[in-house]
Design a binder for these strands. Sequence first.
DNA 1: CGATTGACGTACG
DNA 2: TCGTACGCCAATC
Length: 118
Amino acid sequence: MKQKKKEEDSFFTHVFEVATLIPYGRVTSYGAIAKYLGTARSSRMVGWALNSAHSQKKRVPAHRVVNRNGMLTGKHHFGTPDLMKQLLESEGVKVKKDQVVNFKKLFWDPEIELKIEN
DNA sequence: CGATTGACGTACG
DNA sequence: TCGTACGCCAATC
């Protein structure tokens, strides 16, 4: 019947999925994801969710998620401060002083990209 | 159950 | 333009 509920309906899971949906060479912000999840005011929770991403079996491209300024605020949480930058550069995203270059251009908004279809 | 925190965001000075 | 303060909300201690 109804429920089975076993998967964590917590927005944590949603964050992981959305983060995983981030296309290659693209970046997004915590607020964008939070808003997409309906918890725009809980932008902080998004970052926290990604913090749990380390425990996730699936690799979550959290390195594609930056703050509103396009700054790699969470680079410190990747294990190594340079890892995030390296990953982004590896995808073609240029990072200048811990800040994503052309961030606005590379910005990927789940509300828009995922709204088109599917 | 209460207090603290946290990878943000916005407002204000 | 930059730094500080506050708010939001859920998870953790």
